[in-house]
């Protein structure tokens, strides 16, 4: 095989080359058996890794189908519109109206996002545009850590700090008596959970804006801030929007932290200083008795399916926006 030229070349017949040829001859003793085994291993692994990879879209499908199958009994007996627009929640009588839970979820999420977006976007822009290296080196790990803290820890923080703050500070300020376990409390705790995410995505997105644009802005005599606002932010706008959507969908499905501070009263919270009952809290609080009441399990799985559908829609939308930005940037 490989040593043919080697041996037949008289000009190369130094001692060194003879030694080399001897060594190469050893290589040739390795039979086709090994080549076959290597190819077989390669083909096997090709199938294995591809299988694992394709399991992921299937997993998504399996989750949706699994929940849908369990939710079927409820959907087939009660029209979908009634489920979504009725606020009659009497599991024992078989009445399942999700309106109160839907309103609760949306309210908590909106409060969280409205609070988190200004902070998240501003600090994201600050980090990528206006901060020095030392700040960045401190901020990035801090954001990572905030993102890694489990939600139950945020929950305990909410119970210890935010609940009293709402009970003794915010509610009396508006002349309302409150236990502190309110929709607003849930929103506040959630916003702290969401803004690291928003900050990180904004930070990433703003960094993709090409430097040439910044230089162009500055060269026209714009101040740093004017360049940021009129050039960089405008360019990064779709990404910032996507960051907010991702924050929204993260907040939407958050369970334990909200559950711990939101009060969990089945009612439509007309103002944020009332207790509410978001969908994730509903599922988590009642899994214990869901098998003992007819249709209750079906109702909870329907709730989970609802959650999945909304989060999925928001996520796919945000990913598409980000993807388009990435393509444009390249």
């Amino acid at each position: 095989m490989g040593n043919r030229i080697f041996l037949s070349d008289p000009t190369a017949c130094t001692a060194e080359v003879v030694a080399g040829a001897r060594l190469l001859a050893v290589a040739d003793r390795v039979g086709p058996d090994r080549a076959w085994r290597r190819a077989a291993m390669d083909n096997l692994m090709r199938v294995v890794v591809a299988m694992f990879a394709w399991c992921m879209p299937l997993l998504l499908l399996a989750i949706a189908i699994g929940l849908a199958v369990k939710a079927m009994p409820l959907i087939s007996t009660t029209p979908l519109m009634d489920l979504l627009t009725s606020s009659e929640w009497r599991p024992l009588k078989g009445e399942f109206g999700f309106l109160a839970f839907i309103v609760g979820t949306v309210e908590v999420t909106l409060i969280a996002v409205l609070l988190a977006v200004p902070f998240g976007v501003l600090s994201g822009i600050y980090l990528s545009e206006h901060s020095n290296t030392a700040t960045k080196r401190l901020a990035v790990p801090v954001l990572d850590m905030l993102g890694a803290i489990p939600s139950v820890i945020f929950g305990i923080w909410g119970v210890v700090l935010i609940v009293p703050l709402v009970r003794n500070g915010i509610a009396p300020f508006f002349g309302v008596a409150s236990t502190g376990y309110t929709v607003l409390t849930g929103g506040l705790v959630l916003s702290v959970m969401v803004f690291p995410l928003i900050t990180q995505v904004v930070h990433e997105v703003v960094r993709t804006v090409p430097n040439g644009l910044r230089d162009a802005g500055l060269a026209l005599g714009a101040t740093n801030w004017e360049t940021t606002r009129k050039v960089v932010v405008r360019k990064a706008l779709p990404g910032i929007w996507a960051a907010c959507i991702l924050g929204f969908s993260r907040a939407f499905g958050e369970t334990i932290a909200v559950l711990m501070v939101v009060g969990n009263v089945v009612q439509i919270p007309w103002n944020p200083l009332q207790a509410g009952y978001p969908i994730p809290a509903l599922i988590a609080n009642n899994y214990g008795e869901m098998m003992s009441i007819p249709m209750y399990d079906s109702a909870l799985m329907f709730a989970a399916l609802l959650l999945l559908a909304i989060v999925l829609a928001f996520n796919l939308y945000a990913r598409r926006v980000l993807k388009r930005m990435e393509i444009r940037a390249n």
């Binding site: 990879a53 394709w54 992921m56 879209p57 997993l59 998504l60 399996a62 989750i63 699994g66 929940l67 199958v69 369990k70 991702l246 969908s249 993260r250 939407f252 499905g253 958050e254 369970t255 994730p280 599922i283 988590a284 899994y287 909870l300 799985m301 989970a304 959650l307 999945l308 989060v311 999925l312 928001f314 996520n315 796919l316 990913r319």
Partner: peptide
């Protein structure tokens, strides 16, 4: 195309709330 699809699936799964995983686990 497969790479894009699988990455998207992973990103989306990453966003699926854990309570939904829990519910799915229960069904499973």
């Amino acid at each position: 195309r497969s790479v894009g699809m699988i990455r998207t699936a992973l990103d989306v799964l990453f966003g699926v709330p854990s309570i939904v995983y829990g519910s799915f686990g229960f069904v499973l």
